[in-house]
Every structure is written in C-alpha cells, then in structure tokens.
C-alpha cells in the first residue's frame, strides 16, 4: 500500500521547525494548505511563484513554503509586489496580508495597487483583529466588539474590504471563509488566473483573540460561526441590507476586464521606441 504523504509536505521548507508557530485551530494554516493545493494543480512551478507578505501572523506564511518568497515590512507587501511584477512580468506574483496589514497601515498601497490594476493575486486573511500584537482593533473589527484596545467596545464602524477593493478598481473581487475549503480553492484558482489586480478576502479565525472577544470559545465554534453565517452572492441579492447584517457574503462579487498596468507600460515602451 502507498504510504500516505500530505501534499503540503512537498512544499514545506525542511529547514523550518514544525508544527508551525500559529495557534491551535488558527485559520492561516487552512488557507496555506488551500493555496498550495491550487498551485500544485496549476501549471506553475515553484520557481514561477513569488509569494510576498508584510508583517503579522499571516505575514509568516511565506516563511514556511518553498517558493520565491519575501517577508517585507508591515503594510508594504503590495509595493514590493508591484516592483517585482514590473521588473519581471513572467513571474506569478502573490501577496498574503492580514486585515491590519492590508487595509490599516497598508490601506494606501492597497487602493493604489487596485487603481493601477497591477497583476497581483492578493489574498487578505481577515480575522478582524491584530493577531500578532495581542488582539487590538483593526479596521475590520465589528462595531461594538470588545478587543484589547477597545475594552468597552469598539466605537468605530468597520470596513468592508471587498467594497473597498471594488471602488478602488480591482478587476476580481471575491470572498470565502476558511470553512468553505472547496470554494476557497476555486476562488484562489480564479485569482491566480486573473490578468489584473485580484482581491480574495478570506474570512479566517484568530482563535486566540477574536474567538475570546466574540465569545466563540473554540476553533470548532468559530468554524461553525463561519458556516452558519455565510450566504452566497446569489442568495444575498434577494435580501435587504438589514437582513444581510452580520452575514458573510461568499462567492465572486466583481469580475471585470480593464487594461492592466504592465500591458500599458509595455505599449508605452513600444511607442517610445518608434519615436
């Protein structure tokens, strides 16, 4: 009988210590496995991929996998990604960011990468909190939630990452949870194929902080929460805004075409060489 080998093991850096650093039940590992599975099924070799992160628990993801990887500064994954894509358009450029990384400190880079339509597959692991630094509020922490920096409840309204991405010009905008693993893989695949700036919001669980604040006391309860509150884009269309409150709309939200930054840059070079 064939010995069972986990597919992900083929992609792990043998120099790293396992089990990995993430807490028990944390969603980042589920996303990492999905990403690796999709890449394994794709035409990309390990050398075709550049995986870039900022700082945060999610930022540690590239440390573990054997692609070309960059672990950059907090909020700046997209700036490095833009530079790499322009310098070597042949590469498949992927960013992995936390919600704080992407839309707090990195919010400015996020909207401009979307506006320029740089071909980057960007995955945002939204656990609604700053995990790495101890559970402070992030721009996606729900109004009223108790966090380390809002012990009496968060008075700020939260960002909808997908609407932000749509308004800023991303050509593919989608959302999944880590519970919905098959959908997650399908959407990762679409994001990798898209010839422009794609955003996949991955609703994930920080079992150490968000779980405690939301009084979901175990990883299993947090996944159940994702399962019970998720609703497909199609079903969501039939509901009013009040009915949609607290729901996680999953699926493809935007899929459109627009010339990407790199194509325009190439045609500019073509024009210049004729002068």
């Amino acid at each position: 009988m064939r010995e069972a080998e986990h597919l992900v093991h083929k992609y792990l850096r043998s120099s790293k210590r396992f089990p990995h650093i993430w807490c028990s039940g944390c969603g980042i590992g589920i996303f990492m496995q999905a990403l690796v599975r999709v890449i394994d099924q794709s035409e990309y070799s390990k050398d075709d991929i550049v995986l870039i992160s900022g700082i945060g628990c999610s930022g540690r993801l590239p440390v573990y996998v054997d692609f070309n990887t960059l672990h950059t500064t907090h909020g700046r994954a997209l700036t490095f990604a833009t530079g790499i894509k322009l310098a070597n358009p042949r590469l498949k450029v992927i960013t992995v960011m936390g919600d704080g990384d992407a839309v707090a400190i990195g919010g400015n880079h996020f909207i401009h990468a979307a506006r320029r339509n740089v071909e980057i597959a960007s995955f945002i692991l939204n656990n609604n909190v700053y995990g790495m630094t101890g559970g402070q509020s992030s721009p996606t922490t729900p109004h009223g939630a108790i966090t380390a920096s809002a012990p009496y409840g968060n008075i700020e309204p939260d960002f909808d990452i997908c609407r932000l991405a749509e308004a800023a010009g991303a050509v593919l905008v989608a959302r999944s949870t880590v519970y919905h693993t098959r959908l997650l893989e399908r959407l990762i695949g679409m994001a990798l194929k898209k010839k422009g700036f794609s955003v996949l919001e991955v609703v994930s669980q920080c079992t150490t902080y968000t779980g405690r604040f939301l009084q979901l006391n175990s990883p299993v309860e947090m996944l159940k929460w994702q399962k019970d509150n998720a609703i497909t884009v199609e079903k969501a269309k039939q509901l009013s805004d009040t009915e949609l409150e607290g729901k996680i709309v999953i699926g493809v939200l935007v899929n459109r075409e627009r010339p990407n930054y790199h194509e325009q840059y190439q045609s500019l070079l073509g024009k210049k060489s004729k002068v």
């Binding site: 986990h6 992900v8 590992g29 496995q33 693993t181 996944l223």
Partner: peptide
C-alpha cells in the same frame, strides 16, 4: 478529504 483540507496543521492525511 474534508478533514485533511481543514486541518490547520497539515497533521491529518487521507490515503
């Protein structure tokens, strides 16, 4: 394969 795919630690494998 759902158990394998949802394991955050790559610690379960279905042969």
């Amino acid at each position: 394969l759902l158990c394998e795919m949802r394991c955050p630690d790559f610690a379960i494998v279905v042969n």
